[in-house]
């Protein structure tokens, strides 16, 4: 068996998530190649070559891959797929955007967001917002899979794989990149942070969300949000945690003014320790919280910040 892992990267840096996907590839077993596709990605390729367990890094450096647009990237993966039994990517918006194309063009199923490998053709994945875990077996010759990073511990970085270019001549006349507005933040990335503090509709306004900054500063936490907080315009969409937002599993998750709808729980219930601060003692979030504090957040949050 041989496995191709699509590297996730941003601004010339390899994303940490890739090391989790390589771990999933190791659990499947076989030779592992990493594909780095982008423009000016030499540094990304070097970082990928250090990941433990990787045999070879294949680099497709071209302007056509600059923004990871699905059409050319899908074509590239399809052109390489015949060498592999498995193609894996992070279950990020990027991986989810491109892998189904690869599967469809190879006429195979795609398996989304696996959290465990049972055998090379059998995987576990959450369905119904994580309220059930399905074990699925694929009879396809090629398995095309996105990996939920929280299911696999990252591999180390003591490898030294060979780096080689991929010859290709793919073009794209279907889609064009116009612009990107990316959130700038000095805080750790939501998916990778050890501590996450999230606010919900109970925060009341965008201004009030700043109340969480002090605790986040002290704990080195990332800040997340419920959908209701995003919909109300308190914070941007990239902060949404849940079934249709980011999936997080930090050491400590603090939910402030969040009721605990199943769609929110889907994104955080695998956190190691959950704290909930909510003024409604009946709020469903308390059913999953290790430590629940029934209190008005406008009093409890400043007090907590002071006492950390």
């Amino acid at each position: 068996m041989s496995i191709l892992v699509l590297a996730e990267h941003q601004d010339g840096e390899l994303a940490g998530a890739t090391a989790h996907v390589v771990a999933a590839a190791q659990a499947i077993g076989g030779d592992i190649d990493v594909l780095v596709a982008g423009e000016n990605v030499a540094a990304v390729a070097d970082a990928a070559a250090k990941l433990d367990g990787v045999s070879k890094v294949r680099v497709a450096d071209s302007a056509v891959f600059a923004h990871q647009l699905a059409e050319p990237l899908g074509d590239l993966l399809v052109s390489l797929a015949d060498d592999y039994s498995h193609v894996l990517a992070v279950a990020s918006t990027n991986g989810k955007n491109v892998l189904p194309r690869v599967a469809a063009l190879k006429d195979v199923a795609q398996i989304s967001e696996i959290i465990a490998v049972e055998s090379p053709d059998t995987f576990k994945r959450p369905i119904y917002a994580g309220n059930a875990i399905a074990t699925v077996q694929s009879s396809d010759a090629l398995k095309v899979i996105t990996v939920r990073t929280t299911g696999f511990d990252a591999v180390g970085e003591s490898g030294s794989a060979a780096v080689e270019p991929v010859e290709q001549s793919i073009d794209n006349s279907l889609s064009a990149f116009i612009k990107e507005t990316l959130a700038e933040s000095d805080r750790p990335e939501l998916g990778a942070a050890k501590v996450v503090i999230s606010g919900g509709r109970g925060m009341g306004s965008a201004e009030n969300f700043a109340l969480l900054d002090g605790i986040a500063d002290k704990l080195g936490a990332a800040i997340g949000a419920s959908r209701a907080a995003v919909d109300a315009g308190f914070v941007p969409n990239d902060m949404q945690v849940g079934q249709t937002g980011k999936i997080v599993a930090p050491e400590l998750y603090i939910a402030v003014g969040i009721s605990g709808a199943i769609q929110h729980l889907a994104g955080m219930k695998d956190s190691k320790v959950i704290v909930a601060i909510n003024k409604d003692e009946e709020a469903p979030i308390f059913q999953v919280a290790d430590y629940g504090l029934v209190a008005d957040l406008f009093e409890a949050v400043p007090e907590l910040e002071g006492k950390l």
Partner: peptide
């Protein structure tokens, strides 16, 4: 081409 081998409830999280 995918067979549903089994479906299980997720690990229950005990409220604290």
């Amino acid at each position: 081409t995918l067979t549903l081998v089994k479906v299980e409830p997720p690990a229950e999280r005990q409220g604290g």
